[in-house]
């Protein structure tokens, strides 16, 4: 990622959300991006997640320059290469856990039978194999976030992007969620985590701090290991 800048125009004033960020994330890394609100970490996350395009600069994802691709191609990349975990879970309401997990595969054109099988597999992996037909309203926050993680990993992405994944959870379920992300990282999947909590960032192997749209520090550390998740909940 080379000299990424993102400028928002609000009336006459220009808001430099990212003022030149250069960053390389290797395959399989577990990176936490830290910063206070307004530091530009969410904007950076959106650009990494191909939801937004930089005003200037270049972004190579897996060797492909993605910053100038059209919306359809970006949608394909989000679908095939990336997996998202959000702070507010963002599961479809009144839709069963299994169907929520199937969703990215629907857009990837995976046949129905295979979709179902993979959804069950992913949900079993996050310990919700017995809650396939529960709707989000019938699940606790921690369970919902696990459904969201299942949805993020079911498409076999190379990168998981987690935006404040523990922000809406208590500390015990937060640990569970972090353990799952570490497990994915151990399988060689790149995990990019955005958080403002140092406790959460402690689970990452590399911490990048942003302030005012610029990187102020980039440190490698020995990650804190989260306890493995309980078998089922």
């Amino acid at each position: 990622m080379q000299d990424i800048r993102r400028v928002y125009r609000m009336g006459d004033t220009e808001l430099h959300a990212l003022a030149g960020v250069t960053l390389t994330i290797e395959h399989g890394e577990f990176v936490a991006i830290m910063g206070t609100s307004g530091s530009g970490k969410s904007t950076l996350m959106n650009i990494i997640g191909c939801l937004d395009r930089p005003t200037s600069g270049t972004y190579f994802l897996d060797g492909e320059e993605v910053s100038r691709l059209d919306v359809d191609r970006l949608a394909e990349i989000r679908n095939r290469v990336l997996g998202f975990v959000f702070q507010s879970f963002n599961l479809l309401p009144r839709t069963s856990a299994a169907e929520n997990v199937e969703l990215p595969m629907v857009y990837a054109g995976v046949p129905a039978k295979e979709r179902r099988a993979r959804a069950i597999e992913a949900l079993t992996k996050v310990g919700l194999g017995k809650r396939l037909d529960h709707t989000p309203a019938e699940l606790s926050g921690g369970q919902q976030q696990r459904v969201a993680i299942a949805r993020a990993i079911v498409g076999r992405p190379r990168v998981i992007l987690a935006d404040e994944p523990t922000g809406a959870l208590d500390s015990r379920t937060s640990v569970e969620v972090m353990a799952m992300l570490q497990a994915e990282s151990d399988l060689g999947i790149t995990v990019v985590l955005v958080t403002h909590e140092p406790d959460v960032a402690a689970y990452a192997a590399r911490v990048i701090s942003l302030r005012d749209g610029k990187i102020v520090s980039d440190q490698r550390q020995t990650p804190l290991r989260a306890a493995p998740p309980e078998a089922s909940a």
Partner: peptide, 13 residues
């Protein structure tokens, strides 16, 4: 929001 989620998960316009 649902539309946003679908888009994030790879739905094209």
């Amino acid at each position: 929001r649902e539309i946003g989620v679908r888009m994030a998960l790879g739905a094209k316009p």
